[in-house]
Write a protein that binds this DNA or RNA. Structure first.
Lengths: 203, 203
DNA sequence: AATACACTATACCGATCGGTATATTGACAT
DNA sequence: ATGTCAATATACCGATCGGTATAGTGTATT
């Protein structure tokens, strides 16, 4: 509580942008939801575009911090954390307010790659992929970047799938797939098409 | 050529909806792009919503037909077709007009699950998943539904990833992951965490 | 020649869009 | 008491939104 007026405006805007979409949300509605007026809104955010960018930047910060904390709370080892990623995603998807990924949605609404909204959204997944790649490297993946991209695809796919149809088990299936990919990505396995039969003793 | 006026309107609307987004496209712009007037547009499509639904339904039909034909042209066996899916996706992504998946984008713009636009979009991925599940069954997957959902997640993830950042290799990595999942999904492999060391001789 | 009909042209409707101008309120500092 | 400054209230701007009303044009059928 005790939020700055600027923070209250940003918070109201964020909830509306996420739940209804950016283009579908007017500045009048935002001012009303924040219990203020358009004049104050335009004092802190000179244009709707600025407000949208602020929304995405804050969401980027908040989400990444929250996500890493959730993963850390669930698992200790790199491998366990890679798997915990999918548990956290699964729990996030289960909340009734879930409307997919704000960045994917924003990039869909502002489809040109040069658009600032699109760019900020793309940065989020760069950060996310780096986070996964870091875990994959600690885990001992023979190709952390490849594994990270593959796991990111599963995460993004699960989010989109769950957005289109709730409770279709996307997160669980993503985790099952992730298990196979993670197991198969260990350093000492040289070729995915010719499995050498050893696994084990990483914790 | 020689399109009905109704078809010309739908085609113009489809291109604008896909390239710019649905909410971002006004009916005036559609009428102008189709070289006609709003009066004619509203004769064939009583509301913009009707036009949007018509766009999605036609795209559903066209895309699925085109996609299956592309896959069939690339591969003969079920396994090869499952892999060819990712080649076709990769080629589709490479065309400069690519702006992601029209259904994912539409579902993002109309986020409520009850919304007709959202529902039609969700149906597309039901159909797509069924198509993959059919191939997975023919291939001999021990769980065609699970494999189909997992591969669908990779496809959707690749599309979204490529939409956010072009030429990031999403389709190739999705295919690499798919190879591992498909190989690991054969009937005679009983437990993903304890690999039995046989593979091979399916073509 | 007359009727019918698909289509065009254009002006309009009320509502909402993003954004601004102006005047007022209220608390706090000097 | 006076000035400062954050915030409100409200009315307005031109543009665009989805959608409609009305009149006119061209062509084919009878």
């Amino acid at each position: 509580m005790s939020l700055t007026l600027q923070e209250k405006i940003l918070q109201a805007a964020s909830e509306l942008f996420y739940s209804q979409g950016i283009r579908a949300t007017g500045v009048d509605a935002i001012a009303k939801a924040a219990n203020t007026t358009k004049m104050s809104l335009y004092k802190y955010f000179p244009s709707k575009d600025d407000l949208v960018i602020a929304f995405l930047r804050k969401r980027d910060e908040d989400f990444r911090g929250w996500f890493a904390a959730q993963v850390d709370a669930k698992a200790d080892t790199p491998k366990a954390k890679l798997l915990a990623v999918f548990d956290v995603i699964g729990e996030w998807m289960a909340v009734p307010e879930f409307r997919g990924c704000a960045f994917i949605n924003a990039a869909a609404e502002f489809s040109l790659e040069g658009n600032p909204v699109h760019q900020v959204s793309a940065e989020f997944y760069d950060h996310f992929r780096s986070y996964i790649a870091d875990l994959a490297g600690q885990y001992g993946s023979k190709s952390p970047e490849s594994l990270a991209l593959q796991l990111s695809l599963l995460v993004e796919g699960a989010i989109v799938s769950e957005q289109m149809k709730r409770h279709s088990g996307a997160a669980e299936q993503a985790k099952q797939a992730a298990i196979v990919l993670i197991e198969g990505s260990l350093d000492h396995i040289s070729d995915t098409s010719l499995p050498t039969n050893n696994s084990q003793e990483e914790q």
